Amino acid sequence: MTGGHVSTVMVTGANRGIGMELVRQFAEMCHPPERIFATCRNPQEDRMQELKKLAAKHPNIVIVKLEVTDEESIRAAAKEVEAHLAGKGLNLLMNNAGVMPPSTLESVTQEDMLDVCKIDLVGPMLVAKEFLPLVKAAAKQSKEKGLSCSKAAIINTSTIGSSIGNPPSMNTFPVISYRCAKTALNMLTRCQALEYKDDGILCAAIHPGWVKTDMGTQKAELEVEESVRGILNMLSKLAEEHSGRFLNWEGKFVAW
Rank of each mutant, 00 (worst) to 15 (best):
F246G: 00
T159P: 09
V108W: 00
H207K: 05
G3Q: 12
S158R: 06
K57A: 15
P43R: 02
F173M: 10
D198M: 05
E223L: 11
K129N: 14
L222G: 02
M113R: 05
P102G: 01
S169E: 08
V224E: 13
H242E: 14
D214Q: 10
M234N: 03
T183F: 08
F37M: 01
E67A: 05
G146E: 09
N233D: 15
A137G: 02
Q141V: 05
L51I: 12
E225F: 00
C203E: 06
F173S: 09
E106S: 07
N42Q: 14
K136V: 09
V68N: 05
C180H: 08
Q49D: 08
C40S: 07
Q218H: 11
R47D: 14
I18G: 01
A138L: 09
E195T: 14
G200R: 02
T157W: 10
G87P: 04
T2Q: 07
L222A: 03
S177M: 03
I206H: 06
V9R: 04
N233Y: 09
K129V: 00
S227W: 00
V9W: 03
L188P: 01
L22Y: 04
K151L: 01
G4S: 13
L247K: 02
V62G: 08
M125P: 00
R35H: 15
A193N: 05
M187Y: 15
L134H: 03
R24W: 01
G87S: 10
A27G: 10
R16G: 02
E45M: 05
V224G: 11
K252M: 06
T8H: 13
C30T: 15
E50N: 13
N96Y: 06
C191G: 11
I18V: 11
M125S: 12
S73W: 03
S103K: 06
I201T: 06
S158W: 08
V64S: 04
S150T: 09
S148H: 02
V254D: 01
E241M: 05
V6T: 15
P208M: 04
S107Y: 11
N233M: 07
S236V: 04
M125D: 07
L114M: 11
A86N: 15
S150Q: 10
N233A: 13
A153H: 02
E240P: 00
G244Y: 11
A204G: 11
P102K: 07
K140N: 13
T217G: 05
E80P: 01
I119L: 09
K182E: 12
L202F: 09
E226A: 15
L222D: 03
E67W: 00
R24S: 13
P124L: 03
I18H: 00
L105R: 06
D112P: 13
C191T: 13
C149A: 08
L134S: 09
A153W: 01
L134M: 14
S107C: 09
T213F: 10
N248K: 05
P102L: 00
K79Q: 15
D214V: 05
L238A: 12
L235I: 04
F246R: 01
V99T: 15
R229L: 04
E82D: 15
N95D: 14
L22H: 04
V6Q: 06
R229N: 08
S107A: 10
V224N: 12
I231Y: 10
G19V: 02
P102C: 00
D112Y: 11
M48T: 10
L194T: 14
T12G: 07
K88A: 15
E67L: 00
